[in-house]
């Protein structure tokens, strides 16, 4: 299984993050410095090796899961039964 995180690049304005940040402050969470909203995807895929799985996830992330103009991605892999 792959867990993929897609996040807005730091230079891209994130109005959702700002709205969540403001709501947290309104709830009294004074220490909140910054909130950024991203996406989390879980993929179950077949592959012979971790390397093969990683290569597939990289390509999927580049070609569809993220938009490289505005987003970065990161992922982790784990074996499932």
């Amino acid at each position: 299984m792959a867990k993929v995180e897609v996040t807005l690049k730091k230079e891209v304005h994130d109005p959702q993050g700002t709205a969540v940040e403001n709501s947290l402050r309104a709830l009294g969470f004074d220490g909140v410095q910054r909130v950024r909203v991203g996406k989390y995807l879980e993929l179950v895929l077949e592959a012979e090796t971790f390397e093969e799985a990683a290569a597939k996830i990289e390509e999927m992330s580049r070609r569809l899961l993220s938009n490289p103009v505005i987003e970065d991605y990161d992922y982790s892999l784990q074996e499932v039964e």
Partner: peptide, 10 residues
């Protein structure tokens, strides 16, 4: 080129 993002007003 470029991208279209969420309206700043949400």
């Amino acid at each position: 080129p470029g991208a279209l993002c969420r309206n700043d007003s949400l």
